[in-house]
Nucleic acid binder design. Sequence first.
DNA 1: GTCTATAACGTGATAGAC
DNA 2: GTCTATCACGTTATAGAC
Lengths: 206, 206
Amino acid sequence: MGGKDINKSTEEKIKAAARTVLYKKGFAATRTRDIAEEAGMNLALINYYFRSKKKLFEIIMSETIAVFAGKLMQILNDQATSLEKKIELIAACYIDMFTEEPEMPTFIVSEIRNHPEAMLKRIPVKQAFSQSYFIKQFELAVAAGKVTEPNPFHFIMNLLGLIVFPFIGKPMLMASAGLNKTQFNQLMQERKKSIPIWIKAVIKAT
Amino acid sequence: MGGKDINKSTEEKIKAAARTVLYKKGFAATRTRDIAEEAGMNLALINYYFRSKKKLFEIIMSETIAVFAGKLMQILNDQATSLEKKIELIAACYIDMFTEEPEMPTFIVSEIRNHPEAMLKRIPVKQAFSQSYFIKQFELAVAAGKVTEPNPFHFIMNLLGLIVFPFIGKPMLMASAGLNKTQFNQLMQERKKSIPIWIKAVIKAT
DNA sequence: GTCTATAACGTGATAGAC
DNA sequence: GTCTATCACGTTATAGAC
């Protein structure tokens, strides 16, 4: 099983390298050679372990969406947390995730554009969202008059927009404000606290 | 000059086709053959008029950024409009722009990721923003105690996030809410009015 | 499992006729 | 200016030695 362990290890090395390169350059712009070089391995091993560039990409893509959407659904469906707490948890969770993997959001939106089937088939997004515990809580809050914007779709767009957009627009924003990486990350940390406050203002302002 | 007119026309046809295909697929994934087919013209004409795929791309990219950033700067620098009016104008302008060109925002963020030099060189974003009339107005509002979030950078991130993110996340959002194109556009139109209201709530909530 | 060498293919670009 | 035919190159993928 020493052999097995080494196999597993090289396979994981290739996947990790693929993730790094694909996140940064996207499917069409990355060459299998880039992945092999990043992994410090021979080009032929990629086809040996993953059959093709496309198969490897689909694995990375699937796992990425699973992490991204899974974490969101997990928080939205937690019956032990309030609506307010859910907002805080989502902001903190995604700001940490994207601070560690800054290329992930742009990778997701770019590749979903180029391969819409790849995600629509994989996850029953619609049911997962409309049947979530969050929706029940939100409707209750609307009925109780605590929320003046009654559309949960606007709510989730606004929340995700406030969280995700700075990471997607990072190059533009950093350039226009003259920020370095540390300053940018500092600002994102501040947003963990301010986004929940803003969202509460937003859902009462309509 | 009949000849000249025809030339101009084919050149413009190629540019229009290139814009369509590039917006949808990005630089790396589009083939010059795709552009030729979209334009209903011969492959060789692309090189005849634009020398190379890259040159053609750079023209499209430049014009796109010029339109996108130019419109924003124009509104931010207008000395005749109040801060509140500027928010309304920006929301209305970009929601209309992206409703007509839905692939534009994702094109911009994807290609800036892949060619960061291409934009950073082209426009002095930093000075344009920090020296804009908007910044003066914003600082005045802060000094007058009208705005409790004193960081204009957060302000612009939030505004752009609320406007742009729904268009970037469109495939995900449409799938998770089960919307068709008309319903989506309807929601975006609603946001022309609600975003300014939300932003006012946001800048007073911190 | 890992390497080298190479096949098979797609794509950007051009030469040259019209 | 526009077309057809083709070159030149880079890239994915595989065959076969080790």
